[in-house]
Design a protein around this nucleic acid. Sequence first.
RNA 1: GCCGAGAUGGCGGAAUCGGUAGACGCAGCGGAUUCAAAAUCCGCCGUAGAAAUACGUGAGGGUUCGAGUCCCUCUCUCGGCACCA
Length: 872
Amino acid sequence: MQEKYQPADIELAAQARWQQTAAARAVEDLSRPKYYCLSMFPYPSGKLHMGHVRNYTIGDVLARFHRLRGYNVLQPMGWDAFGMPAENAAIQNNVPPAQWTYANIEYMKGQLQRLGFAIDWDREIATCKPDYYRWEQWLFTRLFEKGLIYKKLGTVNWDPIDQTVLANEQVIDGRGWRSGALIEKREIPMYYMKITAYADELLASLDDLPGWPEQVRLMQKNWIGKSTGVRFAFPYELDGKSDRLWVFTTRADTIMGVTFVAVAAEHPLATWAAARNPEIAAFVEECKKGGVAEADLATMEKKGIPTGIHVSHPLTGEQVEVWVGNYVLMGYGEGAVMAVPAHDERDFAFAKKYGLPIKQVIAVDGQEFSLDGWQEWYADKQNGVCVNSGKYDGLGYAAAIDAIAADLGARALGEKKVQFRLRDWGISRQRYWGCPIPIIHCADCGDVPVPDNQLPVVLPENVTIDGAGSPLAKMPEFFDTTCPKCGKPARRETDTMDTFVESSWYFLRYCCPDNAEAMVDERVQYWCKGGIDQYIGGIEHAILHLLYSRFFTKLMRDVGLIGDLGEPFANLLTQGMVVAPTFYREEENGKKQWINPADVNLETDERGRAVGATLAADGLPVVIGGTEKMSKSKNNGVDPQALIDRYGADTARLFIMFASPPDQSLEWSDAGVEGAFRFLKRVWKIVHDHVGAGIVPAFGAAQAGELTPALKAFRRQLHQTIGKVADDYGRRKQFNTAIAAVMELLNAYGKLDDASPVARAVRQEALEAVALLLWPIVPHIAEALYGELKPGCQVAAAGWPQVDETALTQDEIELMLQVNGKLRGSLRVAAGADRATIEAAALASEAAQKQLAGQAPKKLIVVPGRLVNIVA
RNA sequence: GCCGAGAUGGCGGAAUCGGUAGACGCAGCGGAUUCAAAAUCCGCCGUAGAAAUACGUGAGGGUUCGAGUCCCUCUCUCGGCACCA
């Protein structure tokens, strides 16, 4: 055995061995339980970042652990290969997006292999390849025919200088990121997926996902936002014609307090008013400025203008003025809202700003409303009752709504309605690098889906991109076609699909990536039965990606593709971000120049506190910024490649798993990496020393009589550790504590001072177990060590070590002794001692005598196996 | 603005069901080894205090024999907000 731990040699040898033996190949096998371990596939951005390393290490640990536990494990990998960055890179470097993407995939695949992940590369998928996206197009045509995909107007960010649609990310402070132009909202026709048709099921089946974090289920529930309210109308007359202005509210109990109505700038009433009043027209124009992101709309200053149009209150007939409000969204609900300033915080602020009437119609404990400032109780549903509301006075929230809805119904002006916050999913993108939408526009036949025998609609890969609109719309060879129905000349759709579409079903395709005849086949039934066993990815995907994937699974189920599989992911682990300290220098113009942590020396005081930092290159001070998510903009990223090159994959994997639990953010620390490397060197040395003295058969039951108390205690710790690590890997998914437990075990091993044959056998037993316990996290070194301890034996064949129950028994246990809840000592009692014995021992103890000072205790609390508390 | 999380020594974190706060690691300090250094090994390491002890888990209140853990109020930080992926 090599004396020194040399990670590079061990790791490359292990990886070559795994490749030769196809160690990670997954084959359907009904004789064993399956374990489908899925990590979110990466966008091929160039090279792996620490977040990827973390994500895939977690997946690999779970995959390998289940492998040892006897499961038939599938761990696939692929590439979420369509998307905007490829187009940006194309503009910047003049490389076609396809070429850039494929080069990145090749490089990043090499990095994943160098990290030693047990991935079945035979199932690799890249979503930008026609053999993948053709099935997406095929499904699109089916859904289009079923009416689950339809066309309507949608609002986008329009850059008037570059003459192009921008993503929300490309709009910074209301301006285009490249042109600097003020962004406008523009309505264009787009295809939508009818996710709202599945809103109820998406909500209800959240309850069938006990393996998901509660916070994710809650976020999805709130996102879907099911509410029961009342949809009702304000009748009005305009240009001599009668019409109705519809609104929706969850607070119909406050309807008697309506003092105005607000409509969106795109609402027909706003358009009518704008055509007759230049001031209103100017305001409507102003509302079109700025982007469409909801966070911006929700935080901007609320503004409005009166239209002069009045509508009738549906119950009182009172005239109520219609305002145009910049905070009312045309795409949500009816594009109009009733305003009750007394009982809605936003309406309250708006009414005060414009001097509109405020009428109290709800009171809690008879309290009078005041105009000084908003009080929480003004909107209290639980305790409020109607006042100043005529026949509704005295009614509570639910009763008032029932009565009001009934009266509205009697006049045919409204009814109760279930409403969702969830909106249909707009999937059209005016971009090149995406899956072409398989529709042909015919002047006579309308929108015609591309027939199966003409699929896939292949995206041309050799294009030049100039940043002004999609190149597809400038390529007649792409869009000139004939109508599949009537044969006349027609135009092919040039929009592509949202890349969330590709990532909504890739996990099903992994089961059968080689099927050229169908989107999916029966192998999905094997691997996905009961749901994918574990899904791992960033918490930032808690809503959109995970909701769309759930939706797609239900869609595909209803198209008859995947049996009765309704939920794709049985268990979900959302990992935290990888963060690192930031450093910067302020330039003369006030701009911050960010400096990479690798180029900075930290100065600490005698206690280790950071007191300052200098740039290594010039020795001059730099400012210590906050700890933030690793990013290009803050230049605080640590390149995993440098880490692997220096310490090897095992150290990188170990540090990342040890530094924090997977669902919390992970703070990068170079010193911590050094510590992880030191631990592996120590393990290597311990095994080296043991093997050097001669390997022996592991401890067996026949030797039980020879155990000293120290060896007995050590074996107890060993078998406790085996149990704990299994629990941490399998149930808790808390890998940092599993590693800590193994560290503790090896600390105890180091304190064993015994060279007897039985001690050697116990050491052998412990080290064999340690190699297996560590294998999921650091597979390369673990296999090398196991091979030294048991020549000719394979970790994968060994399986997870057995807990020896007899090693766990104890004759005597220690209880803590509290007086008035404060720790005052401890008691040693026989393991099976009864309550009376424990109480007597507690009262007899020195600590108890001292604290009680002769007084009788008021109460004695005994928690079996844990403590005695004497209440004096 | 709305929805969801989080806050524990100098640092990352542990405490799994309300029961010994600070496991494990990093940094630091002291020692051994060394011509010396690196590496390695051993010891110390929340704050105050000589000690007994007191205080201590973002802030303020509460429940309990007992609270990092449960409840209420607040502060700050982070994730998401439908075209970043």
